[in-house]
Simulated assay, not measured.
Amino acid sequence: MKLENKKIVTKEETPYPNTLYKYREWDNPYHQTLITKREVFFPPPSGFEDPYDCKIPIRYDLLTYNERIEFGVRVLKAKEPGKPHHYYRQKAIQQYPNSAFASPKRIEEIQKIEAEDFDKRIGILCLTEHPDSSEMWNYYSKNHTGFCVGFDPKILFDYLGGGGAVLYHDEIPIIYPTPKHSYDEQLAFQIFSKHKKWAFEDEYRTFLSKMAQPLSTEDRIVIVPPEAYTEIILGAYMPEEWKEQITKALPPELINIKTRQSTINEGEIVLV
């Protein structure tokens, strides 16, 4: 699919690391395609372990009464353009007692619907700057039996339309409805904000979005140009059989890619 330019920089004037990495499991056929077909997959956020990752609710409940009325005014202006402002405001005030904003339960229902809709229309590619993180090897590469692929972030993000660093917070940011937070601000908060307990990942992300309709499985798969690949790192406990399989499975355009082996020395990961 053609990617839209949607570059979001979350650490201004901070250069990308020289390489960004994706940890995978070799005995998972879907993970193998990262090498065999040069495919990256943009999963929906619903599969993420962090309950707030891309799931921060928009806080309609924190709007003041006047802010809720003004929100209603904007909705009415879109439905009935060309009327004077006092018409919209008076009508918004009249409708308020029966609006969603007057009911905490309805606000929760709206937040749930928005979260489900967001999940269907967004795909996130997660990468890290660390190829030697024991926690990452354990969790994302099946206890050091998998592999890790390095990418040139400039080539990768230029091709995918942009990307940026995840920012880690003591408390999850509050996201307000427009216009207090624009749509772009809401998107940036959702995609690039995580709790500091996940800071060890030092994560960078890029994303796909398709607002008109849900992303299909095919939409979420993107073929990456071979020049974006920099290296493959084999897990310290990867079986020899799998190492041979990887060597044989490399497509011609990746045959000469640098390959390294990770080892564990006194609890530290060493790449050789």
Rank of each mutant, 00 (worst) to 15 (best):
V166M: 06
E266R: 15
K112L: 09
A100W: 01
V75F: 12
D202A: 15
D53R: 01
L271N: 03
P177Q: 05
G163H: 00
A249N: 06
D117L: 10
L62Q: 12
R106V: 11
Y88E: 05
T259L: 08
K142P: 00
I269P: 04
R24D: 04
E218V: 14
K180H: 11
F118Q: 01
S209V: 14
P239I: 07
I174F: 07
A199S: 13
H144F: 10
N143G: 13
F42K: 06
I69A: 14
G163F: 03
P29C: 04
E39L: 11
A199T: 08
S216L: 07
G267R: 00
G150R: 02
C126G: 08
E240L: 15
S141F: 02
L167K: 08
I255V: 06
Y88M: 13
I107Y: 04
D152R: 03
R68Y: 07
L76Y: 12
K180D: 02
C148A: 09
P45N: 05
L63Y: 08
V40R: 00
Q94P: 06
A115H: 00
Y65R: 14
Y65L: 15
P104F: 01
R89H: 14
V9C: 07
L34R: 03
T128M: 06
L234P: 05
K37D: 07
K83A: 15
F42W: 02
Q94I: 14
N256I: 01
P173I: 13
T128N: 06
V40I: 11
I122K: 01
G235V: 09
Q94C: 12
F71S: 15
Y60W: 09
Y229N: 03
A78I: 10
E218T: 14
S133W: 00
K55H: 09
L127W: 00
I264C: 06
Y237M: 10
L215H: 14
I69G: 12
Y87I: 13
Q94D: 12
E240F: 15
V40T: 04
A165E: 03
S141D: 02
G47L: 02
Q186E: 04
S209E: 14
T33V: 06
